[in-house]
């Protein structure tokens, strides 16, 4: 019977493929979409210069990447997780529970977070306090904690343009959000004195949590997608101010103008000197157990942090990564496969 033959052959194919599925010869990477551009540049150059196949780099966000990273050791698990924040203790514990114990942490450099608006709109000079006052549900007005009354930027500070407050900030699944909360909202909370009032009113933990919460009346919109979506939102709403990565902004200077933060214009230089306050380190995490099992894994990690790639004149810096001044130490740590702690 024709059908019997067909079914038999499909089963045979399935069996063969399942058997062949055990060997993997390419490095698999997943995680932060902020690190993805850098990882793809490295992976491409790695494929060109080495005899190993080009590594596969998936996107999906730091948290999703680290979650998959911690699912276990083995050929059908990823080898490297990219992250735009440090791995959390909770995640290290989850890793350990699944047998992923020796994790090598590699810091590849720094990335700036910029605030940009439509090129034809008005220009802004922000401080963290401005952002806290614009986005927090409760702010300090005349020494008292009140529900956020602001609808225009110039109500917060007469020096800012008279423009409606409309912010597009990264959603909570992005590592960028954490940096935004810590370096902008939390800082603004302290600077405006709202921190003391909130802690006094709600207790230490709840007060600090209230510092980084954002208003929910539509003035602040969480973007769960990528920077392209933020750009489209800013394009559609000329009053909007978006939160972008420095590299993304530098590729779209014809559509966006960048705001200064505490008087500093973001650039690779001002970030590397630490003048520009809103920056964060980027990482990737390697499973030590996979080194030696997956061909090319260690070579890829070493190539990533080599001077040719991650150095100040390398292609990563050209794309927008702020080179790590302590790169040599990182190179040594990767070469010796030093795990965390």
């Amino acid at each position: 019977m024709k059908f019997a033959k067909l079914t038999a052959s499909t089963l045979a194919i399935a069996a063969v493929s399942a058997a062949a599925a055990t060997a993997r010869d390419n490095v698999q990477v997943a995680g932060s979409s902020t690190v993805l551009p850098y990882a793809s540049i490295v992976a491409e150059a790695f494929g060109e210069n080495f005899d190993f196949p080009t590594p596969v780099v998936e996107s999906g966000g730091s948290s999703a990447g680290l979650k998959r990273f911690c699912e276990g050791v083995g050929e059908n698990q990823i080898d490297i997780a990219n992250a735009s924040r440090k791995i959390r203790d909770k995640e290290i514990a989850a890793c350990a529970a699944n047998g992923v114990t020796d994790i090598i942490e590699v810091r590849i450099g720094y990335d700036g977070i910029v605030f940009a608006s439509d090129i034809n709109g008005q220009s802004f000079a922000f401080t963290p306090s401005h952002w806290f006052n614009a986005l927090s549900p409760e702010v300090m007005v005349d020494g008292a904690l009140v529900a956020n009354p602001y609808t225009m930027w110039n109500e917060i500070d007469p020096a800012l343009p008279a423009q409606e407050i409309q912010a597009f900030i990264p959603g909570t699944k992005h590592g960028t959000r954490e940096v935004f909360e810590e370096k902008v909202l939390f800082k603004g909370c302290e600077d405006t004195g709202a921190m003391e009032a909130l802690v006094a009113a709600k207790g230490e933990d709840d007060g600090e949590a209230a510092c980084i919460s954002v208003r929910t009346d539509g003035r602040s919109v969480d973007i769960d997608g990528d920077y392209t979506e933020t750009l489209a939102r800013v394009d559609a709403n000329k009053n909007g101010i978006g939160v972008f990565g420095l590299a993304f902004y530098e590729n779209n200077t014809d559509k966006l103008q960048v705001a200064t933060m505490s008087g500093v214009v973001p650039s690779t230089e001002s970030i590397s000197t630490g003048e520009y306050p809103v920056s964060r380190p980027l990482y990737f995490y390697v499973k030590k157990a996979h080194i030696g099992v997956i061909p090319g894994l260690k070579e890829y990690a070493e190539f990533f942090v080599s001077d040719d790639m991650a150095g100040p004149d390398g292609p990563l810096a050209a794309y927008g990564l702020v080179s790590d001044p302590e790169l040599a130490a990182t190179q040594a740590a990767v070469a010796e496969e030093v795990p965390m702690n």
Binding site: S17, N26, A30, A39, G47, V56, V57, S59
Partner: peptide, 25 residues
């Protein structure tokens, strides 16, 4: 395809032959 890891910088190697076509990323 988002969930089974087919989105990202992935389609960078041509498959060598039919088996690789099915199994390589």
């Amino acid at each position: 395809l988002l969930l089974i890891g087919m989105v990202g910088y992935i389609a960078s190697n041509y498959p060598n032959g039919i088996a690789e076509g099915f199994l390589n990323p």
